[in-house]
């Protein structure tokens, strides 16, 4: 098992595990937003905007994982092609 194999494996694990948390978090956030919309349909603008911002915040974690994975795959400093 050389460095390249480990890098590919780690990239997969990073994305896969890193997607779990944000997935759950986004689900909770969207559920809350839906509930709020059902209660107050007239506040759709504020709720939607806040939801998007919140989703972006949550998604940042997944994006961090993705960046790590991409770095491992395409810009690995320990792999010299």
């Amino acid at each position: 098992m050389n460095v390249e194999m480990i890098s590919v494996l780690s990239a997969g694990i990073a994305v896969g595990l890193g997607a779990i948390g944000p997935g759950i978090g986004e689900g909770i956030a969207v559920a809350g937003a839906m509930g709020a919309l059902a209660r107050q349909p007239e506040a759709v603008g504020t709720i939607t905007r806040t939801l998007f911002v919140g989703l972006a915040m949550i998604e940042t974690m997944a994006i961090y994982c993705l960046v790590i994975a991409l770095l491992l795959l395409f810009a690995n400093p320990y792999v010299h092609a």
Binding site: T60, I63, Y64, V67
Partner: peptide, 13 residues
């Protein structure tokens, strides 16, 4: 950092 990486990461991915 998150601001720039989020946008680039999403589009690139």
């Amino acid at each position: 950092f998150a601001l720039m990486v989020r946008l680039a990461g999403n589009i690139m991915s």
